[in-house]
Design a protein around this nucleic acid. Sequence first.
DNA 1: TAAAATACTAGTATTTAACTAGGAATTATT
DNA 2: AATAATTCCTAGTTAAATACTAGTATTTTA
Lengths: 138, 138
Amino acid sequence: MSFFGDLSSKEQNGLRLILRLAETFYSKKPISLNDISKEEGISLKYLEQLMIPVKQAGWIKSQLGREGGYLMTKNPARISLREVMNLLNDNPSLVACLNGNYVCPRQKNCRSRVLWLQLKKTVDQSLDKITLTQAFKK
Amino acid sequence: MSFFGDLSSKEQNGLRLILRLAETFYSKKPISLNDISKEEGISLKYLEQLMIPVKQAGWIKSQLGREGGYLMTKNPARISLREVMNLLNDNPSLVACLNGNYVCPRQKNCRSRVLWLQLKKTVDQSLDKITLTQAFKK
DNA sequence: TAAAATACTAGTATTTAACTAGGAATTATT
DNA sequence: AATAATTCCTAGTTAAATACTAGTATTTTA
């Protein structure tokens, strides 16, 4: 995983899935993964995998059994692209030295780190401004 | 490669290499990969690989033979982090549908694409603002 | 002529991502 | 009560990309 290449399939399909779930917040009609699978052309088994972190985020309510499915309970206007990406990538730190746990020996005077810090800051700010609702405006 | 995970080794070491080369713009003293290898703890052979795109970018002049090395000829103040990342990742398009060559069947009414477009725009703007000189300010 | 460098072309090994498989538990419909 | 449609859980497998190494030729200075 890296920062400026192409998006991974997980990120692309993950957002697709989450956007489809976001519709249920407005419609109040739950949707099953089977239906999403048909609509979006992604295999059911793979969708199940993608759902794991989404469920953990607590943004949705699930209904077991026949006629079951998922319903988004969090307002998409309050879900930013930053949250989505962090979720799908399991809270990455960009580079290890920006994470509290690890201290790099060259950290005191590291030119790269100066740039990574600025990068993370500005990109995070950009991402915070983009929310899921913006996908629903015509 | 993806957009919001951790940076790849190529991106991290590539920037490290480029920043070391940037020093030669100010000092006017060429540096060999062997020296960078020792300074930064990256194998010579790997540095040679990382150099390939950097050479292609035309930012440096190379001096063959003994006492040879590389000298950056482009002002680091005019090299943005966007250019560096695009270089190291071979001009990625973020998602295929943002590239002119490919047309996705769902493109007409694709909610994901709306967000990717906004994302690319704002992130690119952020990156353009960060230049290599910023790593040299105390 | 020897040493120190870049240049070029391959190859391998490791890791990560992408995806599949099977079955258990739950619940509405018939 | 039986069936079908669903989520849930734990693995396993395949494919692709990344990370890195190897060998050798060429150039140039001391």
